[in-house]
Amino acid sequence: MNIFRLAGDMTHLASVLVLLLKIHTIKSCAGVSLRTQELYAIVFATRYLDIFTSFVSVYNTFMKLVFLGSSFSIVWYMRYHKAVHRTYDREQDTFRHWFLVLPCLVLALLIHEKFTFLEVLWTFSLYLEAVAILPQLVLLQRTRNIDNLTGQYIFLLGGYRGLYILNWIYRYFTEPHFVHWITWIAGLVQTLLYADFFYYYFLRFIGGRGVE
């Protein structure tokens, strides 16, 4: 564990806590894409299948349970909790996110590190996470203005993988044979997709007004 990875995990944890805070306290999911949340639930479900078979550390297992629990409860809230569901913007959240799942699965079957069931699904979760934010970014474009909590959520979610990139650079130089091209490229693509969001987000900070 290094400071970059810890900062990345804490940033990721903060993003799900901000979203849960927004949904649970003000009972609103305005501006949040249910489709992105569904994709993230699939990402964690397919990435953490090894939670029962390989124990890394208490921290690792604990965080996996937190991410699994939070992603599925956010989907449940947005789908079935009547007060929250009422604030869900169904008409605007129309990105065909299921069209992202199949290409990621095919790509994982073609490009992976080991051809085993767990490893292919793990690789699938990497590819899917790289594009999972697309429905949210499209929804952002359509709803123009978003509240601060949603803006913070997206900022933290984009930032965590950026910190992971620093972690991979650090590990590459400090650990022999630490080479994971698939993880690195997927993580880079994922972070680059946030580029224009980060641009407008920092403009907001400079301009001191809402995220336009």
Partner: peptide, 10 residues
């Protein structure tokens, strides 16, 4: 490819 040890990252 390096032999990927069990994934120790989240």
């Amino acid at each position: 490819w390096s032999s990927s040890q069990s994934h120790d990252e989240l």
